[in-house]
Amino acid sequence: MKYTKTLIPILIWLFAFSDPVSAQHPNETLLPVKQDFSLAMSYNNHSWAFPLSSVFRMNPQYPGLTVGTEINYRVRPRTKFFQTFELGGFINSASGSGTYFNSDVAFRYTGKRGILLDIGTGFGSFKSYFINDTFKIQSDGSYLKSDDTGVTALSQNIFFSTGYDLSVKHDKNLVLFVRYQWIASAAYWSRIMIRPNGLLHIGIRHSLRTNK
């Protein structure tokens, strides 16, 4: 039951992702898709929040870092269909720190002036850490301090980004972006069922090779 809520979106995601080649234009199917070999890094502020709430909450800050890369499936002059792989974490002394690995299917539109918009969804693995020291009861009724190795669970993600691609107008291989991401981890309090995480990222992306 705990994982049922996650399983259905995963299946939907897999279905959408199942045959990206045949989704391309007939004339493009045999052409190899150029890869950017990009590396993105962002600073983020974590909130305990449901989608689109507490997006711009700045105080107190619960900071984190995310690094990621992308694999292209279809690239056109203004649009791109791709998959992200990202690894990140945040430190939150109030509701518990977390680390995550996500993979999202995403779509990007880049305007003539270099303004870009991303939207994506996917799933991943989210590890929650405890707020304080933890203890486990022993067979004699005493308690022993336990290591905080975190609690790992499946997670669902959605994200929206906007950014500025400096390669379009300034011939610099750098993208500046702001991203809102929501991650729901499947393991949490029984009353709420999911651990809701809102992350506001500000970051940069650099590509080793551009698709021009």
Partner: peptide, 26 residues
Amino acid sequence: MKNRIITITTLVLALLCVSCNKESYQ
């Protein structure tokens, strides 16, 4: 570019330390 990335990384890592402490009890 390299210096900028190092500077940004240093700033981010410094910010990460802000919320490190676990809450104590009385």
